[in-house]
Amino acid sequence: MSIWEYANPKKFMETTARLMPWLVALTAVTLIPGLVWGYFFSPEAENFGTSVKIIYLHVPSAFIAINAWIMMLVASLIWLVRRHHVSVLAAKAAAPIGLTMTLIALITGAIWGQPMWGTWWAWDPRLTSFLVLFIFYLGYMALWEAIENPDTAADLTSILCIVGSVFALLSRYATLFWPQGLHQDASLSLDKAEHVADVYHRPLVLSIIGFVLLFITLVLYRTRTEVRARRLKALQARERMA
């Protein structure tokens, strides 16, 4: 029994059908307590006030926003090397979720930034790279939409994902050269969060685990939908042939 067996759409659908209820339950029992704990039962920070609570949405969504792209990159590579259809459909399924998470991270960041820094937006390297990531998600999804033949679309979006990743890294590096590039960014980082007291740290970790499970659940749901859509396309093509 190798992991590649799940590359067969039928096998994938059977297994995930059994898995989905458990995943939904698991997501619910981590995400909801994590957020409730963070929002209602953790103390307010002395110099941050209530606004610190947004960390329980902001950090997990930012974490997923980046890792969703990395997951898409890996899935695209698997498709290009091993031609497993489910892999590339999972990448396609992850893109809108990654896009949404990036948007959540940007919006919660702006809401947090307003009282903290006195501005909704700053061209800080970290913020800028999230904006760039947002555009990359858009481009990836737009290319999927534009191409009729599913295998062609899969190949080209995978290539875009790989090349895009290189340029995304370069952009990240490039913004570090900005003269104003060194301010304020540490307050947003996960490293910093790990230094904060346990009272903030524990619910945050639970929220992150919840977000990861939410991401996996959503990706699997969407992949199942994509597999069905792809099957519909194949059946329609067969219809035309007969």
Binding site: M13, E14, R228, R238
Partner: peptide, 11 residues
């Protein structure tokens, strides 16, 4: 063959 064009239904 196209693994999606099968005669059997998906779960």
């Amino acid at each position: 063959h196209d693994p999606f064009a099968g005669a059997e239904d998906l779960a």
